[in-house]
Every structure is written in C-alpha cells, then in structure tokens.
Design a protein around this nucleic acid. Sequence first.
DNA 1: TTATGGATTAGCT
DNA 2: GCTAATCCATAAA
Length: 183
Amino acid sequence: MSNFNQPTLQVAQELLGDFLIREIRGKRLVGKIVETEAYIGMKDKACHASKGMTERNKPMFGPAGYWYVYFVYGNHFCLNIVTEKQPSAVLIRALEPIKGMEQMRKNRGRDDLCSGPGKLCQALKIDKSLNNLKACKKNGLWIEKGDNPPFVRAKRIGVDYAGRWADKKWRFYIPNSPFVSRH
DNA sequence: TTATGGATTAGCT
DNA sequence: GCTAATCCATAAA
C-alpha cells in the first residue's frame, strides 16, 4: 500500500498483510498488520470527524497518507492513517510482531505486544509527536507492501454509541490469527 | 471555569 | 463475564 488516496474500505482491506515499520535511532521495530477498521466521513457517527473539524481531528481533514494519532481513555494512543478526500481514516488495531520484539517487550513491560490499538502504540513508541506527520521513512514511521492474506469483515469495536453506524461491518482482520485484539 | 465521556487495557470474578 | 483506572478534548456554563 503506497497510495492512500482511494476509498477507505479498500485501503483498510489492502493494509492487511502490509508491514508497519517504526525506526528509532536507526533501530527498526516491524509488525505485520492483521486488523484494521475504517472510519468514513462526516456522516459516520463513529468517526471523530462527524462533529466537524476540531483541534484533535484536523489531520483527517488534511491529505491522505498522514498519521492521525489521538489519546483516549486517559491511557492510550490510537494510530490511524488518513485516506481519500473526505475526512476519513483507517485505525490500525493489531499487528503480528516481526522484528524488534525484545524492544517491544521492554516498551510494554509484558509479553502481549501488539494485539490492540493502544498496545501497539506502546510497543512501537507511537505518541502525539507523530500526529499529522506524513507516513514516510523520514518521520520514522511508515508502511511497506506485503502479501494480501485472506480476511473476514465484522462490526467495529467500541462504537456502540454510534447508533446504526455501529452496525457497519467496517472492521477487517485475519481469521484465526492469535495476534488480533480480543472481544 | 467546570463537567462529561471515550475508536482501551488490565486485572479480577 | 465485569469494571476501575485515567486524563485530555470537547461542550456547557
């Protein structure tokens, strides 16, 4: 996946199997993307952009291919890649750790490394300093193409407040992977 | 200036 | 299965 300026559902599906690469002081942490969710436009009540542009969500109103990182529940960061023209993004929910597991384990303080949006941000040291930066090597966080695996689609998680939008099957993951988030 | 609640996680029953 | 923890962004006043 290199062009994020295309329909969000398509980006969310094509990202599965791609590699998320984090480079810190020359050291690389690598994970394969195994779970994503699409948040699409201002009508989608589950999407932060549905309330209009705010200080927090403004990266989604910018160009595709930029990171949208936000803080939730007083504890956790979530990593999204901005897509297409309308304010939309794909939430990266889980990774299969590929490289740099020792460092991830240090960052996390436990063996459960990347099986959730908050977990993978902690494992890869992703925080608001990356917010609204382009996904490229220069910024130390980018995506490289991998093989497209078979996947299934399901309802998004944690958005029950969004009414009928909560029923949209806009979550994609690799079935039977031990690395996807629980629930 | 104050109040509210969340795109979660960890720990416990 | 259930829920406390935790704090920033947002909305209300």
